[in-house]
């Protein structure tokens, strides 16, 4: 049987859509990941993705046409609860994150088994958790929604760059200089939730934190300024996502895992380069 070349795969609209959406999603995740890593909030992505999984499961059981209609508001609400819990609430931020995270995962899987929306519950769960083919099965609406949200996050990030910088390194100074830090933190929580939900379509629930974290820490190996780290993280994630999707399409490997593997391998290259640059 003659093998299909990558150029032939590009003739399929859903492959082209996956490349465009995948690159944009990982770009906005990488940009968001830099301040998250620096503020030591790396696990927030993981926790919120588990909440989104639970919401998606319920949306599937309730036969929502698009599961994002439920998963997005629920994840945003969870992000706002987590933000509030870090500020003198009865349950501390990390404990609240753990509780929401595992509770939502358990509830989601329970609901999927009690009222399955397809005959292949295990396959559906695997696909959702690891993003094996999700990015290739986007509907046109899904694709435009993902692209639109990704572009909006990137544009917002560019416009708010200075504030992002201030809040990342010295929130007290930002507050003292008149910035509305509560509003900024609320907006940041909403943006993180949006990025998590759309990123799950690319790499799945369990691997989404890699899109946030790995580009940032790889960039920090070679770049020293905040601006340089952001630029390097953006380039890093675009290259790795493109490579990951292309390899997965041709080799038939799960898309999410292939992208994360490309990220990890590239991280080690960046670490080696970083040693030489010192």
């Amino acid at each position: 049987m003659d093998e299909v070349t990558f150029l032939e795969y590009l003739s399929y609209p859903f492959v082209r859509n996956a490349l465009v959406a995948g690159v944009l999603i990982s770009l906005c995740a990488a940009l968001l990941g830099v301040p998250l890593v620096l503020r030591r909030l790396s696990f927030m992505g993981d926790g919120l993705s588990h909440v989104a999984f639970g919401a998606m499961a319920v949306a599937g059981v309730l036969n929502f046409a698009d599961t994002m209609a439920l998963s997005l508001p629920v994840t945003i609400a969870a992000a706002l609860v987590l933000m509030r819990s870090g500020r003198g609430a009865k349950t501390g931020g990390d404990a609240m994150l753990a509780m929401l995270s595992v509770g939502a995962m358990a509830a989601g899987y329970l609901v999927m088994n009690l009222k399955p929306s397809s005959s292949n519950v295990s396959g559906d769960v695997c696909t959702t958790l690891f993003g094996s083919v999700s990015i290739l099965t986007l509907t046109t609406l899904d694709m435009w929604l993902s692209v639109g949200l990704s572009v909006a996050v990137c544009v917002l990030w560019l416009f708010a760059y200075n504030r992002v910088f201030d809040m990342t390194f010295d929130e007290s100074y930002a507050r003292a200089s008149g910035a509305n830090t509560t509003l900024f933190n609320t907006l940041a929580a909403v943006v993180v939730a949006v990025v998590i939900v759309i990123s799950m379509r690319l790499v799945g629930t369990l691997l989404v934190s890699s899109l946030l974290v790995v580009p940032a820490i790889a960039a920090m190996r070679v770049a020293k300024s905040f601006r340089a780290v952001c630029v390097v993280a953006a380039v890093f994630t675009v290259v790795c996502s493109l490579a990951g999707i292309m390899i997965a399409v041709v080799a038939g490997t799960p898309v999410g895992s292939t992208i994360v593997a490309a990220d990890i391998i590239s991280f080690f290259f960046m670490a080696i380069i970083g040693r030489f640059l010192k």
Binding site: M1, V4, Y9, F14, V133, L136, V249, V250, G252
Partner: peptide
């Protein structure tokens, strides 16, 4: 569909 890689085949078959 039989010439496609596994994941593209699954996506194509789903559609």
């Amino acid at each position: 569909f039989t010439r496609l890689s596994k994941i593209v085949r699954q996506a194509q078959v789903t559609r």
